[in-house]
């Protein structure tokens, strides 16, 4: 029995590393795209920069990030060739790097371009400001709105990762009815959707016409408090700060997965 329990705990720890790595690479890192659209320091950092990098975890996810023309784009397309390719030998190694620890991944392609890599690291630090904002920084309404947008996008992308890689969430995912669930902050956004078709979960940025279920948040503060676990969702629904209409079971099951995204990214 003791061995069985040890094995179970070990499996859970391994799964956690795997899920967090998928979240870091495919839900968090792509938020660099939105960071440079808004943040002046980030724009300054990538000014004149033309650089592409691929992060890959051995036996796991891979992401291609391109910086050029003052923009950042990311894709999971594995056919694109990057200036530099960095390989993590394990999920844990990747997560340690994303947590800010000194980790040296293996350059499996291209050359180390120290200046570009340094700037990339600085971008990651800036990104953290938005995804783990301080109370002081949230006093700026523009910054707060951007935080909500990037968090909403992280959640939408994160749900897709959990539905595939987290054993609890993938079990719950089977209960999610097919359709498109839209989440929108009133009055003018941001908005993001999660599409569920054929067992596949996919994030969509912005609004769609005729979603299966719509969840609206009264304002930026309501959305932020809900995303950061400071607001009781059921109470918010009752007093009208959050409203749901349409196929409620879809939002209900998705909310369980969304909560789990938050738990992983704490």
């Amino acid at each position: 029995m003791a061995n069985e329990m040890t094995c179970k705990c070990k499996c859970a720890a391994e799964e956690r590393q795997k899920v967090v790595a998928h979240l870091n690479m495919l839900a968090v890192l792509p938020r660099l795209e939105e960071l440079v659209q808004y943040d002046a320091d980030a724009q300054e950092l990538i000014k004149g920069m033309k650089f592409s990098i691929r992060f890959r975890v051995m036996g796991g996810p891979s992401i291609f990030i391109a910086i050029g023309n003052g923009k950042i784009t990311s894709t999971t397309d594995t056919t694109l060739s990057a200036d530099t390719g960095l390989l993590f030998t394990s999920y844990e190694q990747a997560n340690r790097m994303f947590a800010g620890e000194k980790v040296v991944p293996i350059p499996y392609w291209g050359a180390w371009r120290m200046s570009d890599l340094k700037r990339f690291t600085q971008l990651s630090t800036l990104l953290e400001k938005y995804l783990k904002p301080s109370d002081e920084s949230l006093k700026d309404p523009g910054f707060k709105a951007q935080v909500v947008k990037m968090t909403l996008h992280t959640i939408a992308a994160g749900v897709a990762q959990l539905a595939e890689h987290d054993s609890k969430a993938s079990h719950w995912a089977k209960s999610v009815p097919e359709g498109v669930a839209m989440f929108k902050v009133l009055p003018e956004g941001p908005a993001a959707c999660i599409s569920v078709q054929g067992g596949k979960f996919r994030p969509i940025w912005g609004e769609v016409k005729n979603p299966s279920v719509t969840t609206t948040f009264k304002d930026i503060d309501t959305a932020l408090n809900l995303f950061t676990g400071k607001l009781d969702a059921f109470a918010a629904l009752g007093d009208g700060d959050v409203r749901m209409s349409g196929l409620i079971p879809m939002a209900d099951h998705l909310n369980a997965i969304i909560d789990r995204v938050g738990w992983y990214l704490k």
Binding site: D232, A233, F234, L237, D239, G240
Partner: peptide, 17 residues
């Protein structure tokens, strides 16, 4: 009270308001 009205009587699954 967590959720204000917990369980099946929650207004969340009616039409709040």
């Amino acid at each position: 009270i967590p959720g204000a009205i917990p369980g099946h009587m929650t207004p969340a699954i009616t039409v709040p308001g």
